[in-house]
Amino acid sequence: MNELKKRRVELSHGGGGVEMNNLIRKVFFKHFENDILVRDEDAARLQFDGPVAFTTDSFTVSPRHFNGGDLGKIAIAGTVNDLAMAGAIPQYLSCGFIIEEGLEFAELESLVQSMAAELAKSGAKIVCGDTKVVPKGAADGLFINTSGVGTCIAAPSWKRLEAGDAIIVSRDIGAHGACILASREGLELDTELQSDCDTLWPAVKALLDAGIDTKAMRDATRGGLAAVLNEWAEARELGIEVAEQALPIDPAVQGLCELFGFEPAELANEGTFVVAVAAEQAEQAVAILQQFQSTATVIGKVCNEYAGKVVQTSPWGSKRYMELPKGELLPRIC
C-alpha cells in the first residue's frame, strides 16, 4: 500500500503507450467522468445557442497545497471564474497537464480530485485534455492549463461603467495573497490565514437570477483590487473613488499587512470579485452576495472626477491615488 502511494510519474507515462493510457483512465477519466469526455474522440463536439465566451489560463502556484485550496482547485476556479465574470455559464473546460518527472501519483490524484470537486460547484465539465511528462527540472512539479467555454447570459463590460455606479466587492480582500506569502515564507501566525480560492459562479448566478444588471465584473486576481479598479478607471477614463474604511479586510490579513507593510488592496485573490451596479441596485446586490460571503460590501463609486485614476479617501478626508501595484514596494519617506 505504501509502495503504491509512493509511486511517481515517470517519463514513460507521457510516451503515449500503455502506461500513459493507464494514467489517463485511472486518474483523469475516473474523476472527470462525463458523457462527452468518455467518448474519447480527437475533439469534443459541443452545442451552443447564442454567443459564447472562451477563456484560457495556465496555473502554477508555489506551494501547490495551501490553506483553503491547492493547484487543482485554482486551475478550475480560475477559468470558471473568468467565464462567470464575462456573464457566461461555465460549461465546458479543456485541461492540459505538464508533469515534471518524479511527481507522486498520490499528489497528482489528490489534485485531480480537488479539480473534480471544484467542477461540481458550477456544473462545468472537462471535455478534453492533454498530458505531457517532462524531464526533471524542465517544470516545477506540475503545471495545469485550463480553457473554458460557456454560453453568455449577460454582457458585463467596463465600457458600461458610468459615474454614480456603485463598486462592490464580493468579500474581504487579500486572503489568497496573504496566505501564499505566509506559507511560502513559513510564517506562523496566531490566526491562520486561509485563501479565498473559490468558484464564483453560484454568486454571479444568484445576482443574474435576481435581475441585477452587473454592469462590469472582474475577479481580483493578480494585483488584487487595486489592479482591477485601475484597469477600469483607465480604460473607461472615469474616476473611481474608494473609501479606505469601507474596504473589508479580515483581521488575520490585516495583521500580516500591518506587520510587513503590505496593502491588502494589492494582494492577490482567487475567489473575490468586483462588480459595478447602478446605485439603485447596490443594496440588493450586496444582500445577495452576503448570502455567500458575509463580508460583501459597497466600497466606493464611479465618478467624473479623477479621470483614469482610483482615489482612496482616508477617514479624515484626505485623498490619495490607489496606485497600480508595482513589483517592488519602494519607500519614499525621506
Partner: peptide, 13 residues
Amino acid sequence: LLRKGLQAGINSP
C-alpha cells in the same frame, strides 16, 4: 515572524 521576514527580505529593503 519578524526575524523570518528579515531573513526572507519580506518588504525589507
